[in-house]
Amino acid sequence: MIAAAEWTADEIMTVTAARALGSGMACFVGIGLPSTAANLARRTHAPDLWLVYESGTLGAKPGHLPLSIGDGILAETADTVVSVPEVFNYWLQPGRIDVGFLGAAQIDRYANINTTVIGDYADPAVRLPGAGGAPEIAASCKEVVVVLRQSRRTFVDAVDFVTSVGYGTGPGDRARLGLRGGGPGRVITDLGVLAPDPGTAQLTLVSLHPGSTVEQVRAATGWDLAIAPDLAATPPPEPGELRVLRELTGHG
């Protein structure tokens, strides 16, 4: 486990997520790790990344990381500020957003996401914040990238509540449900990267982060995880990426 000494679990997740973003893409950004990753990408390899926050700030270029999706710095640096109905109806819904980032409390093998409750909906063990913009981000972005730490608690056989749909109950379900976006293309964790198998739509381990092992990833997954035959090794974070990331998060 040499990795832990050089970068944290959050840092490799953030750097790997940032690399999923290309310059010129339109990215729907949630707060927390997704916002950090998107701003890291904009300061490194993707200077023309177009950041859309659900507060209606289109093309925001914050000079420091906002704490909320509606901090003043987003409005001050945006190309334009639109209303909340407009950001969802005119920008997200028609498919104008390339990539949406989502977090999750639970995820299943078809990349369905729960951010609503742990336990029974009517009498929850833990009440989580709920849906926010996620269901429509999951429905309408061209690609969804999910970022969360991997454990048996988060990677479960069946989510307690489907807040946002990945691939439903399997291949063909997205089309059947009328979901026009591509669905989750990558799930980035602290151990590796998973992607849906083109045949089964089930999440499969496609890349292993430095320092983690296949056994470790399997042990942190609540279903019998398939491993891609051409399993890749995630390139480690580069010093430049880590430096910019640590400047952004104030851990420099």
Binding site: Q93, T116, A131, P135, A139, L179
Partner: peptide
Amino acid sequence: LRGYTGTDLVGQ
């Protein structure tokens, strides 16, 4: 709108 389909929010 296009949304909610397939989620457990429907029905609550």
